[in-house]
Design a protein around this nucleic acid. Sequence first.
RNA 1: GCGCCUGUAGCUCAACUGGAUAGAGCGACGGACUUCGAAUCCGUAGGUUGCGUGUUCAAGUCACGCCAGGCGCGCCA
Length: 540
Amino acid sequence: MDSNDSGEMQRELNCNMIRRELKKILQQIVPDEEIRIDYVPKGKPGDYATNVALKIASKRGESPLTVAEKLIKKFKDPMISGVTICEPGFINFEISTQYLLDLLHRETATIDVGESKKILIEFVSVNPTGPINIAAARAAAVGDSLVRILNKSGFRASAEYYINDTGRQIDLLAESVKQRMNELSGEKAQIPENGYHGEYIKDVAKELLSENIDTIEDIKNYSVNYFVNIQKKTLEDFGVIFDYWIQESEIYKKGLVDTVLKILQDKKLTYEKDGALYFKTKEFGDSNDRVIITSDQRNTYLLPDIAYHLDKIQRNFDTLINIWGPDHHGYIKRLKGGINALGYADDILKIIIAQEVKLKKGGEFLTMSKRAGTFTTLNELLEQVPRDVVRFFFLMRSNSQHLDFDLDLALKESEENPVYYVQYAHARIKSIIAFAKDQDIEFQEDVDLSLMSEKEEITLAKEILKFPEILEDIVRTYEPYLMTYYLINLAQCFHYFYQKHRVVTDEKQRTHARLFLITKTAEVLQKGLELLGVSCPERM
RNA sequence: GCGCCUGUAGCUCAACUGGAUAGAGCGACGGACUUCGAAUCCGUAGGUUGCGUGUUCAAGUCACGCCAGGCGCGCCA
Protein backbone atom coordinates (compact mmCIF):
# COMPACT_ATOMS: atom_id res chain seq x y z
CA MET A 1 0.00 0.00 0.00
CA ASP A 2 1.51 3.36 -0.97
CA SER A 3 1.25 6.49 1.14
CA ASN A 4 -1.47 7.93 -1.02
CA ASP A 5 -3.73 5.03 -0.24
CA SER A 6 -3.24 5.12 3.48
CA GLY A 7 -4.89 8.51 3.78
CA GLU A 8 -7.99 7.17 2.14
CA MET A 9 -7.89 4.05 4.24
CA GLN A 10 -7.78 6.15 7.38
CA ARG A 11 -11.16 7.63 6.56
CA GLU A 12 -12.75 4.35 5.65
CA LEU A 13 -11.41 2.46 8.58
CA ASN A 14 -13.40 4.63 10.93
CA CYS A 15 -16.22 2.27 10.19
CA ASN A 16 -16.10 -1.49 9.85
CA MET A 17 -19.12 -1.68 7.61
CA ILE A 18 -18.62 -1.64 3.87
CA ARG A 19 -22.30 -1.05 3.33
CA ARG A 20 -22.22 2.14 5.37
CA GLU A 21 -19.22 3.46 3.50
CA LEU A 22 -20.89 2.88 0.17
CA LYS A 23 -23.99 4.58 1.41
CA LYS A 24 -22.00 7.58 2.55
CA ILE A 25 -20.32 7.96 -0.82
CA LEU A 26 -23.58 7.64 -2.72
CA GLN A 27 -25.29 10.07 -0.41
CA GLN A 28 -22.85 12.75 -1.54
CA ILE A 29 -23.65 12.13 -5.18
CA VAL A 30 -27.42 11.88 -4.68
CA PRO A 31 -28.14 13.91 -1.56
CA ASP A 32 -31.92 14.08 -1.89
CA GLU A 33 -32.62 10.40 -2.14
CA GLU A 34 -32.54 7.78 0.56
CA ILE A 35 -29.83 5.34 -0.41
CA ARG A 36 -30.27 1.66 -0.03
CA ILE A 37 -27.48 -0.84 -0.44
CA ASP A 38 -28.28 -4.49 -1.06
CA TYR A 39 -26.21 -7.60 -1.40
CA VAL A 40 -25.93 -8.75 -4.98
CA PRO A 41 -27.90 -11.91 -5.75
CA LYS A 42 -25.97 -15.05 -6.60
CA GLY A 43 -24.65 -15.12 -10.11
CA LYS A 44 -24.62 -11.37 -10.65
CA PRO A 45 -21.45 -9.31 -10.90
CA GLY A 46 -20.12 -7.44 -7.88
CA ASP A 47 -20.76 -7.54 -4.15
CA TYR A 48 -23.10 -4.70 -3.27
CA ALA A 49 -25.76 -2.98 -5.36
CA THR A 50 -27.97 0.05 -5.27
CA ASN A 51 -31.28 0.70 -6.95
CA VAL A 52 -30.97 4.48 -6.73
CA ALA A 53 -30.89 4.97 -10.49
CA LEU A 54 -34.20 3.13 -10.80
CA LYS A 55 -35.66 5.28 -8.07
CA ILE A 56 -34.79 8.66 -9.51
CA ALA A 57 -35.07 7.90 -13.22
CA SER A 58 -38.71 8.87 -13.57
CA LYS A 59 -38.19 12.09 -11.63
CA ARG A 60 -35.46 13.06 -14.02
CA GLY A 61 -37.34 11.94 -17.07
CA GLU A 62 -34.50 9.73 -18.18
CA SER A 63 -34.09 6.01 -18.48
CA PRO A 64 -32.61 4.24 -15.45
CA LEU A 65 -29.67 3.06 -17.52
CA THR A 66 -28.83 6.62 -18.58
CA VAL A 67 -29.06 7.83 -15.00
CA ALA A 68 -26.82 5.00 -13.87
CA GLU A 69 -24.27 5.87 -16.55
CA LYS A 70 -24.16 9.45 -15.35
CA LEU A 71 -23.90 8.49 -11.70
CA ILE A 72 -21.01 6.11 -12.02
CA LYS A 73 -18.91 8.74 -13.75
CA LYS A 74 -18.81 10.63 -10.46
CA PHE A 75 -17.90 7.51 -8.61
CA LYS A 76 -14.31 7.07 -7.63
CA ASP A 77 -13.05 5.45 -4.50
CA PRO A 78 -10.15 3.10 -3.75
CA MET A 79 -12.58 0.83 -1.95
CA ILE A 80 -14.26 -0.03 -5.23
CA SER A 81 -12.49 -2.05 -7.87
CA GLY A 82 -15.31 -2.37 -10.35
CA VAL A 83 -18.71 -0.96 -11.21
CA THR A 84 -21.24 -2.69 -13.42
CA ILE A 85 -24.58 -1.46 -14.61
CA CYS A 86 -27.19 -4.19 -14.79
CA GLU A 87 -30.61 -4.29 -16.38
CA PRO A 88 -32.95 -2.69 -15.65
CA GLY A 89 -30.79 -0.12 -13.88
CA PHE A 90 -28.96 -1.52 -10.89
CA ILE A 91 -25.47 -0.30 -10.13
CA ASN A 92 -23.30 -3.11 -8.80
CA PHE A 93 -20.07 -2.50 -6.95
CA GLU A 94 -17.18 -4.84 -6.65
CA ILE A 95 -15.16 -4.24 -3.52
CA SER A 96 -11.40 -4.15 -3.92
CA THR A 97 -9.82 -7.32 -2.67
CA GLN A 98 -7.03 -5.38 -1.06
CA TYR A 99 -9.54 -3.28 0.84
CA LEU A 100 -11.42 -6.37 1.99
CA LEU A 101 -8.33 -8.10 3.21
CA ASP A 102 -7.16 -5.01 5.06
CA LEU A 103 -10.49 -4.90 6.83
CA LEU A 104 -9.87 -8.39 8.17
CA HIS A 105 -7.27 -6.90 10.46
CA ARG A 106 -9.89 -4.69 12.02
CA GLU A 107 -12.34 -5.45 14.75
CA THR A 108 -15.12 -7.31 13.01
CA ALA A 109 -17.20 -8.55 15.89
CA THR A 110 -18.65 -5.34 17.27
CA ILE A 111 -20.14 -2.16 15.93
CA ASP A 112 -20.73 1.20 17.50
CA VAL A 113 -24.09 2.53 16.44
CA GLY A 114 -25.89 2.73 19.77
CA GLU A 115 -24.48 6.03 21.04
CA SER A 116 -24.51 4.49 24.51
CA LYS A 117 -28.27 4.78 24.64
CA LYS A 118 -29.94 3.00 27.53
CA ILE A 119 -32.42 0.32 26.58
CA LEU A 120 -34.54 -1.73 28.94
CA ILE A 121 -35.92 -5.00 27.63
CA GLU A 122 -38.63 -6.60 29.69
CA PHE A 123 -39.56 -10.16 28.88
CA VAL A 124 -40.89 -13.45 30.22
CA SER A 125 -42.56 -11.81 33.26
CA VAL A 126 -44.94 -14.72 33.76
CA ASN A 127 -47.04 -14.74 36.91
CA PRO A 128 -45.33 -16.30 39.93
CA THR A 129 -47.93 -19.01 40.05
CA GLY A 130 -46.19 -21.85 38.27
CA PRO A 131 -43.39 -22.95 36.00
CA ILE A 132 -42.27 -21.26 32.79
CA ASN A 133 -44.17 -22.22 29.68
CA ILE A 134 -42.92 -22.68 26.15
CA ALA A 135 -44.22 -19.37 24.81
CA ALA A 136 -42.34 -17.50 27.54
CA ALA A 137 -39.29 -19.61 26.76
CA ARG A 138 -39.25 -18.31 23.22
CA ALA A 139 -39.48 -14.76 24.53
CA ALA A 140 -36.59 -15.57 26.87
CA ALA A 141 -34.42 -16.70 23.97
CA VAL A 142 -35.28 -13.66 21.86
CA GLY A 143 -34.97 -11.15 24.69
CA ASP A 144 -31.71 -12.50 26.02
CA SER A 145 -30.20 -12.56 22.57
CA LEU A 146 -31.33 -9.01 21.87
CA VAL A 147 -29.74 -7.77 25.07
CA ARG A 148 -26.47 -9.41 24.09
CA ILE A 149 -26.59 -8.05 20.55
CA LEU A 150 -27.51 -4.51 21.56
CA ASN A 151 -24.68 -4.46 24.05
CA LYS A 152 -22.29 -5.52 21.29
CA SER A 153 -23.56 -2.69 19.15
CA GLY A 154 -22.90 0.29 21.33
CA PHE A 155 -26.08 0.33 23.38
CA ARG A 156 -26.39 -0.16 27.10
CA ALA A 157 -29.13 -2.75 27.32
CA SER A 158 -30.53 -4.45 30.40
CA ALA A 159 -32.90 -7.33 30.93
CA GLU A 160 -35.78 -6.98 33.32
CA TYR A 161 -38.35 -9.35 34.78
CA TYR A 162 -41.57 -8.00 36.24
CA ILE A 163 -43.12 -10.00 39.05
CA ASN A 164 -46.86 -9.63 39.47
CA ASP A 165 -46.89 -10.29 43.18
CA THR A 166 -50.14 -8.45 43.86
CA GLY A 167 -53.74 -8.77 42.82
CA ARG A 168 -56.37 -11.34 42.28
CA GLN A 169 -54.24 -14.04 40.68
CA ILE A 170 -51.97 -14.08 43.68
CA ASP A 171 -54.92 -14.26 46.07
CA LEU A 172 -56.17 -17.25 44.12
CA LEU A 173 -52.75 -18.82 44.26
CA ALA A 174 -52.56 -18.45 48.04
CA GLU A 175 -56.03 -19.88 48.45
CA SER A 176 -55.20 -22.83 46.19
CA VAL A 177 -52.06 -23.56 48.17
CA LYS A 178 -53.95 -23.33 51.43
CA GLN A 179 -56.50 -25.84 50.17
CA ARG A 180 -53.74 -28.24 49.17
CA MET A 181 -52.27 -27.85 52.65
CA ASN A 182 -55.65 -28.77 54.11
CA GLU A 183 -55.77 -31.74 51.82
CA LEU A 184 -52.36 -32.94 52.94
CA SER A 185 -53.61 -32.61 56.53
CA GLY A 186 -56.45 -34.97 55.76
CA GLU A 187 -59.20 -32.49 54.96
CA LYS A 188 -60.98 -32.07 51.69
CA ALA A 189 -59.47 -29.58 49.25
CA GLN A 190 -61.82 -26.91 47.98
CA ILE A 191 -59.80 -25.19 45.33
CA PRO A 192 -61.52 -22.10 43.91
CA GLU A 193 -62.90 -22.57 40.43
CA ASN A 194 -60.52 -20.04 38.90
CA GLY A 195 -57.71 -21.23 41.13
CA TYR A 196 -54.67 -23.34 40.41
CA HIS A 197 -55.46 -27.01 40.13
CA GLY A 198 -52.07 -28.30 39.00
CA GLU A 199 -50.36 -31.05 40.95
CA TYR A 200 -47.27 -28.89 41.36
CA ILE A 201 -49.15 -26.80 43.93
CA LYS A 202 -48.80 -29.72 46.33
CA ASP A 203 -45.04 -29.31 46.43
CA VAL A 204 -45.16 -25.82 47.83
CA ALA A 205 -47.98 -26.87 50.17
CA LYS A 206 -45.75 -29.58 51.62
CA GLU A 207 -42.96 -27.13 52.26
CA LEU A 208 -45.32 -24.72 53.98
CA LEU A 209 -46.63 -27.44 56.26
CA SER A 210 -43.16 -28.42 57.31
CA GLU A 211 -42.32 -24.77 57.92
CA ASN A 212 -45.47 -24.33 60.00
CA ILE A 213 -46.63 -21.37 57.99
CA ASP A 214 -50.38 -20.93 58.01
CA THR A 215 -51.60 -17.35 57.76
CA ILE A 216 -52.85 -16.47 54.31
CA GLU A 217 -50.51 -13.49 54.04
CA ASP A 218 -47.47 -15.63 54.84
CA ILE A 219 -48.61 -18.35 52.47
CA LYS A 220 -48.91 -15.75 49.75
CA ASN A 221 -45.41 -14.39 50.27
CA TYR A 222 -43.86 -17.81 50.58
CA SER A 223 -45.58 -19.12 47.45
CA VAL A 224 -44.62 -16.14 45.31
CA ASN A 225 -41.06 -16.45 46.43
CA TYR A 226 -41.10 -20.17 45.82
CA PHE A 227 -42.23 -19.85 42.23
CA VAL A 228 -39.99 -16.89 41.46
CA ASN A 229 -37.02 -18.97 42.58
CA ILE A 230 -38.08 -21.89 40.44
CA GLN A 231 -38.46 -19.60 37.44
CA LYS A 232 -35.11 -17.98 38.10
CA LYS A 233 -33.45 -21.38 38.30
CA THR A 234 -35.05 -22.55 35.05
CA LEU A 235 -33.99 -19.40 33.26
CA GLU A 236 -30.43 -19.79 34.52
CA ASP A 237 -30.41 -23.34 33.23
CA PHE A 238 -31.51 -21.87 29.94
CA GLY A 239 -28.65 -19.39 30.06
CA VAL A 240 -30.80 -16.34 30.63
CA ILE A 241 -29.75 -13.91 33.33
CA PHE A 242 -31.84 -10.88 34.24
CA ASP A 243 -30.32 -7.64 35.45
CA TYR A 244 -33.40 -6.57 37.37
CA TRP A 245 -36.29 -8.34 39.07
CA ILE A 246 -38.98 -5.77 39.76
CA GLN A 247 -41.98 -6.49 41.96
CA GLU A 248 -45.35 -4.97 41.37
CA SER A 249 -45.59 -4.36 45.11
CA GLU A 250 -42.53 -2.10 44.89
CA ILE A 251 -44.35 0.06 42.40
CA TYR A 252 -47.15 0.44 44.93
CA LYS A 253 -44.71 1.21 47.72
CA LYS A 254 -43.13 3.96 45.69
CA GLY A 255 -46.55 5.55 45.40
CA LEU A 256 -46.46 5.47 41.62
CA VAL A 257 -49.86 3.86 41.29
CA ASP A 258 -51.44 6.73 43.21
CA THR A 259 -49.44 9.20 41.16
CA VAL A 260 -50.73 7.75 37.90
CA LEU A 261 -54.30 7.65 39.14
CA LYS A 262 -54.11 11.29 40.19
CA ILE A 263 -52.66 12.41 36.86
CA LEU A 264 -55.38 10.59 34.93
CA GLN A 265 -58.08 12.09 37.11
CA ASP A 266 -56.60 15.58 37.00
CA LYS A 267 -56.48 15.40 33.24
CA LYS A 268 -60.14 14.34 33.21
CA LEU A 269 -59.21 11.11 31.48
CA THR A 270 -61.36 8.99 33.79
CA TYR A 271 -65.04 8.60 34.53
CA GLU A 272 -67.24 6.46 36.72
CA LYS A 273 -69.76 4.02 35.42
CA ASP A 274 -71.66 1.33 37.31
CA GLY A 275 -69.44 1.91 40.31
CA ALA A 276 -66.22 1.27 38.36
CA LEU A 277 -63.60 3.78 37.27
CA TYR A 278 -62.77 3.90 33.56
CA PHE A 279 -59.71 5.26 31.78
CA LYS A 280 -60.63 6.90 28.47
CA THR A 281 -58.30 4.81 26.33
CA LYS A 282 -60.54 5.40 23.32
CA GLU A 283 -59.00 8.86 23.15
CA PHE A 284 -55.73 7.10 22.40
CA GLY A 285 -57.04 4.84 19.69
CA ASP A 286 -58.25 1.89 21.74
CA SER A 287 -61.49 0.23 20.71
CA ASN A 288 -63.03 0.59 24.17
CA ASP A 289 -62.42 2.49 27.37
CA ARG A 290 -60.89 0.29 30.04
CA VAL A 291 -61.73 -0.26 33.69
CA ILE A 292 -58.87 0.59 36.01
CA ILE A 293 -60.71 0.25 39.32
CA THR A 294 -63.48 -2.29 39.64
CA SER A 295 -66.74 -1.70 41.48
CA ASP A 296 -65.39 -3.71 44.40
CA GLN A 297 -62.42 -1.36 44.55
CA ARG A 298 -59.77 -3.59 43.07
CA ASN A 299 -57.22 -2.18 40.66
CA THR A 300 -57.14 -3.98 37.36
CA TYR A 301 -53.79 -4.97 35.89
CA LEU A 302 -53.65 -1.88 33.71
CA LEU A 303 -53.29 0.76 36.42
CA PRO A 304 -50.16 -0.61 38.13
CA ASP A 305 -48.78 -1.50 34.74
CA ILE A 306 -48.94 2.11 33.59
CA ALA A 307 -47.29 3.02 36.89
CA TYR A 308 -44.60 0.42 36.23
CA HIS A 309 -43.86 2.00 32.89
CA LEU A 310 -43.68 5.41 34.52
CA ASP A 311 -41.09 3.85 36.80
CA LYS A 312 -39.12 2.62 33.79
CA ILE A 313 -39.22 6.08 32.24
CA GLN A 314 -38.10 7.69 35.47
CA ARG A 315 -35.10 5.40 35.49
CA ASN A 316 -33.92 7.28 32.41
CA PHE A 317 -34.06 4.70 29.69
CA ASP A 318 -34.05 6.00 26.14
CA THR A 319 -35.99 3.06 24.79
CA LEU A 320 -38.25 0.51 26.43
CA ILE A 321 -38.80 -2.82 24.74
CA ASN A 322 -41.43 -5.29 25.89
CA ILE A 323 -41.65 -8.77 24.48
CA TRP A 324 -45.17 -10.11 24.69
CA GLY A 325 -47.10 -13.12 23.52
CA PRO A 326 -49.71 -12.78 20.79
CA ASP A 327 -52.52 -12.94 23.34
CA HIS A 328 -51.46 -9.52 24.63
CA HIS A 329 -51.53 -7.56 21.42
CA GLY A 330 -54.79 -5.96 22.49
CA TYR A 331 -52.98 -4.28 25.39
CA ILE A 332 -50.65 -2.24 23.25
CA LYS A 333 -53.09 0.60 22.66
CA ARG A 334 -54.18 0.93 26.26
CA LEU A 335 -50.65 0.84 27.68
CA LYS A 336 -49.35 3.30 25.13
CA GLY A 337 -52.41 5.39 25.88
CA GLY A 338 -51.35 5.42 29.51
CA ILE A 339 -47.86 6.56 28.62
CA ASN A 340 -49.32 9.27 26.42
CA ALA A 341 -51.66 10.38 29.16
CA LEU A 342 -48.71 10.87 31.49
CA GLY A 343 -47.26 13.30 28.98
CA TYR A 344 -44.65 11.14 27.29
CA ALA A 345 -44.32 10.22 23.63
CA ASP A 346 -45.44 6.63 23.33
CA ASP A 347 -42.78 5.76 20.79
CA ILE A 348 -40.38 5.33 23.68
CA LEU A 349 -42.05 1.94 24.05
CA LYS A 350 -41.60 -0.77 21.43
CA ILE A 351 -43.67 -3.90 21.74
CA ILE A 352 -42.32 -7.04 20.15
CA ILE A 353 -44.93 -9.71 19.72
CA ALA A 354 -43.28 -13.12 19.71
CA GLN A 355 -45.78 -15.40 18.07
CA GLU A 356 -46.91 -18.64 19.60
CA VAL A 357 -45.00 -21.88 19.83
CA LYS A 358 -46.60 -25.20 19.13
CA LEU A 359 -44.95 -28.45 20.09
CA LYS A 360 -45.16 -31.27 17.62
CA LYS A 361 -44.56 -34.91 18.35
CA GLY A 362 -45.23 -37.89 16.15
CA GLY A 363 -46.75 -35.57 13.57
CA GLU A 364 -49.35 -34.33 16.08
CA PHE A 365 -49.51 -31.02 17.85
CA LEU A 366 -49.50 -31.29 21.61
CA THR A 367 -52.43 -29.51 23.18
CA MET A 368 -51.37 -27.10 25.81
CA SER A 369 -53.79 -26.21 28.50
CA LYS A 370 -52.75 -24.81 31.84
CA ARG A 371 -56.10 -25.64 33.30
CA ALA A 372 -56.02 -29.25 32.15
CA GLY A 373 -52.42 -29.48 33.32
CA THR A 374 -51.16 -30.64 29.92
CA PHE A 375 -48.97 -27.67 29.11
CA THR A 376 -45.30 -28.33 28.62
CA THR A 377 -42.83 -26.35 30.64
CA LEU A 378 -39.41 -25.09 29.69
CA ASN A 379 -37.99 -27.48 32.28
CA GLU A 380 -39.56 -30.47 30.63
CA LEU A 381 -38.41 -29.34 27.22
CA LEU A 382 -34.84 -28.96 28.47
CA GLU A 383 -34.96 -32.46 29.90
CA GLN A 384 -35.61 -33.81 26.42
CA VAL A 385 -33.73 -31.47 24.13
CA PRO A 386 -30.26 -30.00 24.63
CA ARG A 387 -30.27 -26.34 25.54
CA ASP A 388 -28.23 -25.31 22.50
CA VAL A 389 -30.79 -26.89 20.20
CA VAL A 390 -33.74 -25.30 22.01
CA ARG A 391 -32.22 -21.84 21.86
CA PHE A 392 -31.13 -22.15 18.26
CA PHE A 393 -34.54 -23.46 17.17
CA PHE A 394 -36.32 -20.64 18.97
CA LEU A 395 -34.05 -18.14 17.22
CA MET A 396 -34.47 -19.56 13.75
CA ARG A 397 -37.81 -17.82 13.14
CA SER A 398 -38.70 -14.20 12.77
CA ASN A 399 -40.63 -12.89 15.76
CA SER A 400 -43.89 -12.69 13.88
CA GLN A 401 -43.70 -16.28 12.64
CA HIS A 402 -45.69 -18.93 14.43
CA LEU A 403 -43.17 -21.54 15.48
CA ASP A 404 -43.69 -25.27 15.14
CA PHE A 405 -41.21 -27.01 17.36
CA ASP A 406 -40.93 -30.58 16.17
CA LEU A 407 -39.58 -32.60 19.05
CA ASP A 408 -38.84 -35.66 16.93
CA LEU A 409 -36.91 -33.52 14.49
CA ALA A 410 -34.96 -31.73 17.20
CA LEU A 411 -33.80 -35.08 18.57
CA LYS A 412 -33.74 -37.40 15.57
CA GLU A 413 -31.82 -35.02 13.40
CA SER A 414 -29.59 -33.92 16.18
CA GLU A 415 -26.60 -34.95 14.12
CA GLU A 416 -27.48 -32.86 11.15
CA ASN A 417 -29.42 -29.98 12.52
CA PRO A 418 -28.17 -26.47 11.91
CA VAL A 419 -26.79 -25.78 15.36
CA TYR A 420 -24.38 -28.70 15.07
CA TYR A 421 -23.53 -27.65 11.55
CA VAL A 422 -22.33 -24.30 12.84
CA GLN A 423 -20.61 -25.76 15.89
CA TYR A 424 -18.92 -28.35 13.73
CA ALA A 425 -17.38 -25.70 11.51
CA HIS A 426 -15.89 -24.09 14.58
CA ALA A 427 -14.59 -27.37 16.00
CA ARG A 428 -13.12 -28.28 12.65
CA ILE A 429 -11.19 -25.04 12.52
CA LYS A 430 -9.89 -25.54 16.02
CA SER A 431 -8.72 -28.96 14.99
CA ILE A 432 -6.86 -27.59 12.00
CA ILE A 433 -5.20 -24.97 14.16
CA ALA A 434 -4.10 -27.72 16.54
CA PHE A 435 -2.79 -29.74 13.61
CA ALA A 436 -0.74 -26.77 12.46
CA LYS A 437 0.57 -26.21 15.93
CA ASP A 438 1.79 -29.79 16.05
CA GLN A 439 3.98 -28.89 13.12
CA ASP A 440 5.23 -25.78 14.90
CA ILE A 441 3.16 -23.44 12.79
CA GLU A 442 1.73 -20.81 15.06
CA PHE A 443 -0.91 -18.24 14.30
CA GLN A 444 0.49 -14.83 13.46
CA GLU A 445 -1.27 -11.55 12.91
CA ASP A 446 1.21 -10.18 10.42
CA VAL A 447 0.56 -12.17 7.27
CA ASP A 448 0.68 -11.52 3.57
CA LEU A 449 -2.99 -11.57 2.73
CA SER A 450 -2.32 -10.72 -0.90
CA LEU A 451 -1.62 -14.43 -1.26
CA MET A 452 -5.33 -14.98 -1.03
CA SER A 453 -6.46 -15.27 -4.55
CA GLU A 454 -8.72 -18.29 -4.59
CA LYS A 455 -12.41 -17.67 -5.10
CA GLU A 456 -13.32 -19.62 -1.97
CA GLU A 457 -10.93 -17.61 0.17
CA ILE A 458 -12.37 -14.31 -0.98
CA THR A 459 -15.94 -15.52 -0.54
CA LEU A 460 -15.18 -16.58 3.01
CA ALA A 461 -13.49 -13.26 3.78
CA LYS A 462 -16.47 -11.34 2.46
CA GLU A 463 -18.82 -13.39 4.59
CA ILE A 464 -16.78 -12.70 7.71
CA LEU A 465 -16.98 -8.99 6.99
CA LYS A 466 -20.77 -9.11 6.84
CA PHE A 467 -20.96 -9.76 10.56
CA PRO A 468 -21.14 -6.10 11.60
CA GLU A 469 -23.81 -5.52 9.00
CA ILE A 470 -25.89 -8.33 10.44
CA LEU A 471 -25.59 -6.72 13.85
CA GLU A 472 -26.79 -3.47 12.34
CA ASP A 473 -29.78 -5.21 10.75
CA ILE A 474 -30.75 -6.83 14.04
CA VAL A 475 -30.47 -3.56 15.91
CA ARG A 476 -32.80 -2.00 13.38
CA THR A 477 -35.36 -4.82 13.22
CA TYR A 478 -35.06 -6.46 16.66
CA GLU A 479 -34.90 -9.79 14.82
CA PRO A 480 -32.16 -12.00 16.24
CA TYR A 481 -33.04 -14.84 13.87
CA LEU A 482 -30.96 -13.02 11.25
CA MET A 483 -27.91 -14.13 13.21
CA THR A 484 -28.76 -17.82 12.98
CA TYR A 485 -29.11 -17.60 9.22
CA TYR A 486 -25.89 -15.69 8.94
CA LEU A 487 -23.94 -18.22 11.01
CA ILE A 488 -25.25 -21.11 8.94
CA ASN A 489 -24.11 -19.26 5.85
CA LEU A 490 -20.70 -18.50 7.26
CA ALA A 491 -20.23 -22.12 8.27
CA GLN A 492 -21.18 -23.13 4.75
CA CYS A 493 -18.62 -20.77 3.24
CA PHE A 494 -15.97 -22.28 5.45
CA HIS A 495 -16.85 -25.90 4.70
CA TYR A 496 -16.83 -25.07 1.02
CA PHE A 497 -13.41 -23.48 1.27
CA TYR A 498 -12.11 -26.39 3.31
CA GLN A 499 -13.33 -28.89 0.75
CA LYS A 500 -11.33 -27.25 -2.00
CA HIS A 501 -8.13 -26.12 -0.34
CA ARG A 502 -5.70 -27.27 2.25
CA VAL A 503 -4.73 -24.88 4.99
CA VAL A 504 -1.45 -26.45 6.05
CA THR A 505 0.87 -26.92 3.11
CA ASP A 506 4.56 -26.64 2.32
CA GLU A 507 4.07 -23.05 1.26
CA LYS A 508 4.81 -21.26 4.47
CA GLN A 509 3.43 -17.82 3.71
CA ARG A 510 0.24 -19.21 2.25
CA THR A 511 -0.23 -21.46 5.24
CA HIS A 512 0.03 -18.46 7.52
CA ALA A 513 -2.42 -16.47 5.44
CA ARG A 514 -4.97 -19.29 5.48
CA LEU A 515 -4.45 -19.90 9.16
CA PHE A 516 -5.25 -16.25 9.67
CA LEU A 517 -8.40 -16.54 7.61
CA ILE A 518 -9.82 -19.54 9.41
CA THR A 519 -8.89 -18.14 12.81
CA LYS A 520 -10.96 -15.07 11.93
CA THR A 521 -13.77 -17.36 10.87
CA ALA A 522 -13.66 -19.24 14.16
CA GLU A 523 -13.73 -15.96 16.07
CA VAL A 524 -16.85 -14.78 14.31
CA LEU A 525 -18.57 -18.14 14.69
CA GLN A 526 -17.78 -18.13 18.38
CA LYS A 527 -18.94 -14.56 18.93
CA GLY A 528 -22.07 -15.11 16.89
CA LEU A 529 -23.05 -18.22 18.84
CA GLU A 530 -22.36 -16.40 22.07
CA LEU A 531 -24.83 -13.71 21.03
CA LEU A 532 -27.44 -16.42 20.62
CA GLY A 533 -26.57 -17.95 23.97
CA VAL A 534 -25.42 -21.12 22.27
CA SER A 535 -22.23 -22.86 23.31
CA CYS A 536 -19.27 -23.23 21.02
CA PRO A 537 -17.27 -26.34 21.84
CA GLU A 538 -13.67 -26.80 20.68
CA ARG A 539 -14.32 -30.46 20.08
CA MET A 540 -17.48 -32.43 19.53
C1' G B 1 -68.82 -9.06 13.81
C1' C B 2 -63.97 -6.27 15.00
C1' G B 3 -58.43 -6.32 15.80
C1' C B 4 -53.46 -8.74 15.34
C1' C B 5 -50.38 -12.79 13.16
C1' U B 6 -49.82 -16.46 9.35
C1' G B 7 -50.58 -18.78 4.18
C1' U B 8 -44.08 -19.56 -0.56
C1' A B 9 -41.15 -26.87 -2.99
C1' G B 10 -43.62 -33.26 0.16
C1' C B 11 -42.18 -30.91 5.46
C1' U B 12 -40.06 -26.57 8.34
C1' C B 13 -38.88 -21.83 6.79
C1' A B 14 -35.76 -17.37 3.94
C1' A B 15 -36.21 -13.39 0.46
C1' C B 16 -33.21 -7.09 4.40
C1' U B 17 -37.90 -0.30 4.58
C1' G B 18 -41.35 -2.94 -3.40
C1' G B 19 -36.06 -4.76 -7.16
C1' A B 20 -32.43 -8.76 -10.82
C1' U B 21 -33.57 -16.04 -12.93
C1' A B 22 -38.29 -16.70 -5.56
C1' G B 23 -33.61 -19.36 -2.08
C1' A B 24 -31.94 -22.78 2.13
C1' G B 25 -32.34 -27.06 5.40
C1' C B 26 -34.82 -31.71 6.08
C1' G B 27 -36.89 -35.75 3.24
C1' A B 28 -36.09 -38.45 -1.92
C1' C B 29 -32.57 -40.00 -5.74
C1' G B 30 -27.24 -40.19 -7.62
C1' G B 31 -22.04 -39.20 -6.60
C1' A B 32 -17.04 -37.72 -3.55
C1' C B 33 -12.64 -40.04 1.84
C1' U B 34 -4.75 -43.26 1.17
C1' U B 35 -3.78 -36.20 2.58
C1' C B 36 -5.46 -30.64 8.08
C1' G B 37 -12.40 -33.73 11.46
C1' A B 38 -17.27 -37.27 5.92
C1' A B 39 -21.36 -34.09 12.08
C1' U B 40 -18.54 -32.41 5.43
C1' C B 41 -18.93 -31.48 0.09
C1' C B 42 -21.03 -31.89 -5.13
C1' G B 43 -25.13 -33.06 -8.43
C1' U B 44 -30.57 -34.26 -9.71
C1' A B 45 -35.77 -33.76 -8.87
C1' G B 46 -39.35 -30.59 -6.68
C1' G B 47 -43.13 -23.68 -7.43
C1' U B 48 -49.64 -20.59 -10.97
C1' U B 49 -45.74 -17.46 -3.71
C1' G B 50 -54.02 -19.48 -0.90
C1' C B 51 -57.59 -16.88 -4.86
C1' G B 52 -58.94 -12.30 -7.47
C1' U B 53 -58.72 -7.07 -8.75
C1' G B 54 -55.80 -2.80 -8.54
C1' U B 55 -51.30 0.71 -7.79
C1' U B 56 -46.05 1.19 -11.18
C1' C B 57 -40.60 1.05 -14.77
C1' A B 58 -40.92 -3.25 -11.20
C1' A B 59 -45.46 -7.01 -6.54
C1' G B 60 -44.13 -13.03 -2.61
C1' U B 61 -43.72 -7.86 -0.55
C1' C B 62 -48.18 -2.31 -1.06
C1' A B 63 -54.06 -1.31 -1.36
C1' C B 64 -58.97 -3.42 -1.61
C1' G B 65 -62.09 -7.90 -1.63
C1' C B 66 -62.54 -13.07 -0.82
C1' C B 67 -60.74 -18.25 1.21
C1' A B 68 -58.12 -21.01 5.17
C1' G B 69 -55.56 -21.56 10.05
C1' G B 70 -54.03 -19.37 14.90
C1' C B 71 -54.61 -15.74 18.86
C1' G B 72 -57.28 -11.88 21.18
C1' C B 73 -61.88 -8.89 21.90
C1' G B 74 -64.16 -9.12 30.73
C1' C B 75 -65.38 -4.81 36.44
C1' C B 76 -59.02 -11.62 34.39
C1' A B 77 -53.78 -11.33 34.02
